[in-house]
Write a protein that binds this DNA or RNA. Structure first.
Lengths: 344, 344
DNA sequence: GTTAGCACTCTAATGTTGAGAGTGCTAATT
DNA sequence: AATTAGCACTCTCAACATTAGAGTGCTAAC
């Protein structure tokens, strides 16, 4: 859809006024506040047209206009100017993330915290998706006569542990054998390769001894399976309850979305790389139909990895959110990469 | 404060009616619903007296009575009869926890999930407090030329990891030396003993080599310090927004309390063993002054450990909550103990 | 194509009214 | 002395009416 210059200008003015104040705006105020050299009647005509075309709507007959979701979409695609981030803000983001960079999880958790802080709405971040993740190392630690702990370290620096118990006495030698064999066979392999068929052939290759290890292998598979799933950190979700243009029902919807890990993770996995904006009904998840999501994938070594996102009402300062998220994503990816020393 | 039989009966009736329905109740309905063989006028007199004494109050002149916090307190201390849990519910709790018992964290997380489900309000659970926790084992895993990961396993089965980087090339031999020395020195020691003085004497005892390990020792201290802090899992917090007698402000307060880990953990650490009920202003935390908390400490091997708690409005089915929490706490402690095989 | 003018519509705030619930008090009863 | 019946009183809540104000769409003139 093409729009005449003046219509675009008016549309942008309405949307920006609404984003800033949350109030509808009418032809008269629009005439005063903008550098538009036309009368209110002309603006009225334009507004009427923009309304017919679906970009704007009136909450009621005697109110001004506010954007529709379609209007936001047009604004986001064609009208909004990218915000240039203040250097102080950039530095703040960098420092906060640097302070947390002793473990990848902490960086990622901090990313959601500062996103929420700076953008003023609920935020979330996810650990890198499992698809490119590989087994780095598997370690065993004996915890009792019949029990041991298995620690799995993935190529993206995540750690998962599992306890398992055997019916026989565990000896350090036994653990050593398992340890060596497993790491020889699995180090560098994708997590998804650690499945039942693998377990069976692996156990079989051990002959008699293989019969002793089903519990151990179950624990290994279990830990790999869980590592394949993303961890999600949320932060600032109470902020949703303070956004006065966000009705309780929508806020509840988002909170419930954030609380239901299954469908939430499914939704998040479908977000492609780069920065994505989903407005209202564009969201595939039913609980988000009245909200907007801005989500940026961070990259580790140019590989799309996890996600940093904010969720709020559709009345959103989109340019600001995009700028901040992209900055956070950049540093997050960079610091995780440095932490893992993939670089050198 | 002593109360005559009849007053107690009336007070209990008012409170139970209010807990069940959320509506105030007056002298007339009270006369009908209860086996009280007195006229409404008599009940009116009693109600007036209970109101003067501070157990009840009227939302407004022409409404019935509802309990004050003091009334709830009296009810909880003297009037309520312990609920006997249905066997099916007990079995349900046992099975859900059993399904999660491959790692202590999962048991604890599940505990909060089922508490929230069964009691119908926000719930939380914490990992065992650090005071009795000791170092079980420390492991090193090399991740790069200059980087390694340290994995700390505590006596309560919790796992923490830290990445660290050195300015020199790390060799497997070096890690082995650290590994052996550290475990020799630390295994079985309380986490709180792993502090700066320890690090200094430890490094000093290594002579020249000790100069190479400040990063490593920092990571160890860091991991121990973090393990000392409790992890908190919350669940069902959106349910607060659906409790119609819970105003938005109180709900926000609780959500904010749950989101602010520092003051939350401080509050939780002060909860003694056994089952505790805090009603309204009895709560030491300002954000909880309009809410009620029921919290039970579970025990591992007869040692008070972490906490399972529910939070909601002061209109609470206290007997039910107590029964369910105590059942969950019992199984949680039992299963964690079994997992750690402390028993045999 | 743009503008002035005007009748019209709708909201939000305010006030009014009446039904209903529950009370406290007084006087009568047991 | 405790209990009860009766009654006037108070307060809330919902429904309805009124009014000011904001903004519109339309028409006719520029």
């Amino acid at each position: 859809m093409k729009l005449a210059q003046r219509k675009q200008k008016i549309l942008a003015a309405v949307i920006e006024h609404y984003i800033a104040t949350g109030e509808p705006i009418g032809s008269k105020s629009l005439q005063n506040t903008e550098g538009l050299e036309v009368s209110s009647a002309t603006i009225r005509n334009e507004l009427a047209d923009l309304t017919v075309k679906g970009f704007l709507r009136q909450p009621h007959t005697s109110a001004g206009r506010i954007p529709t979701e379609y209007g936001y979409r047009f604004y986001v695609d064609n009208l909004m100017k990218p915000t240039v981030l203040d250097d102080r803000v950039k530095r703040y983001i960098e420092n906060r993330l640097l302070d947390s960079s002793d473990a990848p999880e902490r960086i990622i958790r901090t990313a959601s915290v500062i996103a929420s802080e700076l953008i003023g709405t609920a935020a979330l971040s996810t650990t890198p998706t499992g698809d490119n993740t590989r087994v780095h190392r598997i370690k065993f630690v004996q915890t009792g006569r019949h029990t041991s702990m298995l620690v799995l370290i993935t190529s993206s620096g995540m750690v998962k542990s599992r306890l398992f118990r055997c019916d026989f006495d565990i000896t350090p030698e036994m653990l050593n054998v398992f340890d060596r064999a497993l790491n020889e066979r699995l180090a560098g392999q994708p997590l998804s390769a650690v499945n039942r068929p693998f377990a069976q052939t692996f156990a079989a290759s051990f002959g008699e001894l293989g019969l002793l290890m089903p519990d151990m292998l179950n624990a290994v598979m279990d830990a790999c399976r869980e590592s394949l799933g993303t961890n999600v950190y949320t932060s600032g979700s109470t902020k949703l309850l303070y956004q006065e243009d966000f009705d309780l029902i929508s806020a509840r919807g988002v909170l419930e979305f954030l609380g239901d890990s299954d469908s939430r993770d499914k939704y998040l996995n479908n977000v492609p790389e780069g920065t994505n904006i989903y407005i209202g009904k564009e969201n595939s998840h039913i609980l988000l139909k009245r909200s907007a999501v801005v989500a940026t994938r961070y990259e580790i070594e140019n590989q799309p990895a996890g996600l940093i996102a904010v969720i709020g009402s559709t009345r959103f300062d989109y340019p600001k959110a995009v700028a901040i998220l992209e900055c956070i994503a950049e540093y997050t990816g960079k610091f995780i990469a440095e932490l893992l020393s993939v670089r050198q």
